[in-house]
Amino acid sequence: MLTKLSRRQVLAGTVAGSALALASLSPAFAQVDSIVVTSYGGIWEIAIRDLFVADYEARTGGTAEIQIGGPPQWMSQIEASIDNPPIDVLVNTIDLALVAGRTGLVEKIEPSKLTNLKNIPDRFVESVQGWGVIFDYGAAGIAYHRERVANPPSSIKAMIEGALAGEYVLSLPSISYAPTPQMLIWSLADALGGSVDNVDPAFEALKQLQEANAVIFYGGATEFLNHLESGEAELGIYWDGRTWAHYSTGAEWIGFINPDEGAVMNPVVVQKVVNSPDTAWEYINSVLAPGPQLKFAEMVQYGVTNSEVVYPDWLKERITPWEETRWPPFEEIGAAIPVWVDRWNREIGA
């Protein structure tokens, strides 16, 4: 039997259906005791899910949903709905973590609610001005192709000189890669006699490398490995953890050096979003706990910050101790980024 629908019925049904479909995408429909946490993709997601989320759920009986992406995207989402944020715990880079703090997207750390904070060295809280805690870090040093570079440079300065002498081609991060201001521009300036207020030495070196056809740029972390594998470059500035993670997949041709100047510290911060439930602190406690942190370090091969963590020998020789890294002036770099990016576009290229 055919039922005739009036126009009004069709309209009402369509609007209601569409509204329901759209609303079901909203986190407002998430369970009350459920929180939304963030993670980068790939092995990070697996580690966050299997370690931190699992620990949080086992301890509290609550649930945590993981949102995959990157800090700029997450911060935009929070900014768009600050009263009812779609994210409760934010994983962030330190420069954006400071921006998130200044712009009121995240709360200051409350030590009384973070029992595991006592084992985290003060520097990992002070560096982010209390707008979160550093729980993990990478170090940007020199990664190279062992079979093609017999005598790898021991310092950033020697690396530049070798490339200018035609010994090898460098693969360096482009300005489209978010950590480039710290891991390349400041690092080069610092290594070549400049500073955060004078990055001329860095730009001069980059221009010389370009003129000598001794450099190519990568826009994403995987691309660096492709450059080395395909022979487009022989060495460059890259992360310790990613280098060793690639080594562990069977790419035994790759090696990593902590340069004489020190690899550049790149901390990962965990932050509690404003207007998120108090259970978010419990999740951060899981992130700072020594047990899950050790397993996290074993999986992603990056350093963690809880001082009670004892790395097994195989991992200890791969992780760059944080005391042996260079800490960029993150706040000053954050303020200088627009000028540096503009200068890079005009002098180096996109």
């Binding site: 700029p72 935009s76 482009s174 489209s176 978010a178 201001p181 740029f217 290229g349």
Partner: peptide, 27 residues
């Protein structure tokens, strides 16, 4: 394609938009 094959040799608006969002956060 520009990001992976261009290596900075070409500068186009989509690349700069991504850069402003990702690196500079100048929305």
């Amino acid at each position: 394609t520009l990001l992976l094959l261009g290596g900075g040799s070409l500068q186009t608006l989509p690349l700069l938009i991504y850069q402003q969002f990702n690196t500079t956060r100048d929305l």
